[in-house]
Structure formats: C-alpha cells, structure tokens
Design a protein around this nucleic acid. Structure first.
Lengths: 107, 107
DNA sequence: CCGACTGGTAAGCTATTACTTACCGTTCGT
DNA sequence: ACGAACGGTAAGTAATAGCTTACCAGTCGG
C-alpha cells in the first residue's frame, strides 16, 4: 500500500526512461547494451536507471561483472491498479451524468 | 489508436497537474476555482490545463464568462488500455520465465 | 454602454533536470 | 597479480519547464 504512484508517474514522464523501458520489454539487459541502443551516454542511462529503480519500476541483479536490469511486474501491476481504482471511479460517475452541473460554491 | 500516450505520460509527470486532476475528480471546475484550491497562481493553472488539454486528458467548455474543465474519460480509458496492451504482454512473459537468460548477442 | 468579472497569453526569472566528461571501484580472464 | 571490461558516481553545463507579474480580450449585469 505504499504511495509510489507519484514517483512512478514522475519516472514515466521522461522519453528516455520510456525508451529504456521499451528496450527492457524484450527481457533483462545489462547497462552497456542498453546504452548502446539509445542515443545517450552510458552514465545517463545509469542515472535514469536509478530513477526507475527508486520508483520500483525496474529491478537489478548483478551477474558477473555486469548488472542486469529488468522490468518489475509488480510495480506495473500496482500502477495499473492505481488507474483502475483512482480514476475509474470518477470516470464512471462522469459517464452517467455527463451534463452534471459543477458543485455549489465551496470556498 | 492515436499515439497520445507519450504526451499523456509527460503530462502526468508533474505533481501540480496531478493535483489538478485530483480536483477534477469531483466534477468539472472553472479555472478560478481550481486555482484557489491550489498553491499556484491562476496563470500557472491555465498553462497546466493547456498541457492537459493537448494530451486529451481534460476537455473544456465555456459557460458564460467562465470556462469549465473536466476529465476526459476516453483518454484515461485509452491510457489504461495502453498499460494493459503494452506492458502486460512483456510482464506476463516475465512471470513465467523469471530466471530467463538475457537475449543473445545482438549489436 | 460601462465597470467588473472571467480566463488566456506574453515576457522574464528561477530552478530543476537531463546530459556530458572524468574518475574510481569491482569483477573476471589470462 | 595484472589488464581489461563492466558500471556507478562526481562535477559541471545547458536546456527545459514551471512559476510569477503584467497585460489583454471576451462576457455579463447594472
């Protein structure tokens, strides 16, 4: 029940990080391979990976001298649940009363 | 089938815009009322609303002298579908072969 | 009409952030 | 044990993005 959603959405709000995620869709990759496929330097990739890791969107494990990064299914599941819970409620209400008037004067 | 997902994720990658969305969960609101509930100025809210509108996350209609902003259910639905389609595939694969080896040498 | 309200836009400042190069520690093969 | 490759971190720069104040246009009520 952690409140990682903000951090996750912030992390997803960058094109390069989304590109990293797109690459990781194919399976775990070491940092160097990841950097070679992207138009930025390896340190930049490392920094993005740190953000993604803090948001729990990726996990890492070291294998020999290299470090494998992979998508974290649980985080994406929780994010999807967040969408369902948080927004579907409000949206379902909207679809019924589309012509709803705004709430009365508060503040 | 439009490719608004990037723009939507970029738009959601800002706390103030998420706060705006949170306010709009309760129903449509005019800009001024929205600004009064947030710790930023009205022009700032206007600028955020422009971004949210370009991402199709909100819709607006004018009523008299004021302009009502509301969440756009379709956009949130499509974004949720994006999550399901785009990520669930990769993640389902992961859950089966958790100990999968990384792909062979390509590039 | 005219004054008061609405909200969008312009211009400019500040702060954040994404990027680079340079450096360092770790791990493995020979 | 040494050399090479891996990748994380530090420091500095440049671009971006969010914010503010000031201004302007449209709409409604008197």
């Amino acid at each position: 029940m952690t409140t990682y959603q903000s951090r996750q959405l912030d992390a997803l709000g960058d094109p390069t990080r989304r590109a990293i995620i797109a690459q990781l869709r194919g399976g775990p990759l070491p940092v160097g391979r990841l950097a070679r496929r992207l138009p930025v330097s390896r340190p930049a990739v490392s920094q993005h990976l740190r953000v993604l890791k803090q948001a729990r969107l990726v996990t890492d494990r070291s294998r020999g001298t290299e470090r494998l990064y992979a998508l974290n299914p649980e985080a994406f599941d929780s994010l999807r649940a967040y969408f369902d819970e948080y927004w579907s409620l409000a949206l379902a209400a909207f679809k019924e009363k589309v012509e709803a008037l705004p709430p009365e004067e508060n503040r």
